[in-house]
Amino acid sequence: MRVLLVEDDELIGKGIVAGLRKHGIIVHHVSSAEEADAAHAEETFHALVLDLGLPDRDGLDLLGSVRTVEPQLPVLILTARDAIEHKLKGLHEGADDYMVKPFDLRELAARLHALVRRTQGRAAQVISAGPLRLEPESGLAWFQGASVTLSRREVDLLAQLASADGRWVPPDMLNERLYGLGEEIGSNALNVHIHNIRRKLGAEAIQTVRGLGYRLGWRLAS
């Protein structure tokens, strides 16, 4: 899951990024409405976490702009404004959920997962391809009918390749989707994840062609 976080407090933002990463959520953190508009125009996100007290625009104004472009995007307001009038206004303006600071990161992660499930109209996404069955959200995986342990990055990588539906995915795009914009990435990190997946699932799990990138080695079940 990729989430856009709009939070002008750098310390809080870094804490949310680190905390949600432990729950399998990739977070792209911006500090202003202008940066949020640019990120939303360039990238696809599964949810938006929005502070209301932004330096350049009110958060509710930004919410209105997002709703005009992408009415189905799950939006969770995360703010210090705790009055019931603020909560009601936020929900009436189009937010799907409302949390007040301070908050528990575990609850934030759980609410985001629930919002995305609800919006997508499913209990849990399941990817079936060849001998592999994968639940990206839970991280559970089965290979040839037996449970197999995959790291969070390995699960995310397989899910990204599956979402490409047989198309080649360049390594730069995979790195960006796995780690988020601005995160420091080791030069060999992607190759390590692919090596580990092939070791666990077989060499045919991921195909590669120089100049094209990578794709899932099995066809998705229809």
Rank of each mutant, 00 (worst) to 15 (best):
L158I: 15
E43R: 10
V148T: 15
E137D: 12
K200I: 11
Y98D: 10
L150H: 10
A47H: 06
G186M: 05
R111G: 04
T208W: 03
I206K: 00
N188P: 05
A146G: 03
H193E: 15
R219G: 13
S222P: 07
L11H: 02
N188D: 10
R152K: 12
Q207P: 00
E107Y: 00
T208K: 09
E42W: 07
V155T: 15
A203N: 05
E85M: 08
E107L: 01
D8W: 14
D172S: 13
A33M: 10
L73S: 01
I127R: 13
R81P: 08
R210V: 03
H113A: 05
T44S: 15
E43G: 06
I127C: 13
V209G: 01
A39F: 14
E93W: 12
R198C: 03
A38K: 06
L91A: 03
G202Y: 13
L5C: 03
E176K: 02
L54C: 02
A83L: 14
A162Y: 08
Y214I: 08
Q125K: 07
P102L: 01
L108H: 02
I26Q: 09
E135F: 14
R152S: 11
E183Y: 09
I185H: 10
I194R: 08
A36I: 07
V66P: 11
L178E: 02
Y214C: 03
L178R: 00
L60P: 11
A18C: 09
I197E: 12
S147R: 15
N188T: 10
G19Y: 08
P171Y: 04
P55Y: 09
V126Y: 12
G202W: 11
S147W: 13
E34I: 00
I77V: 15
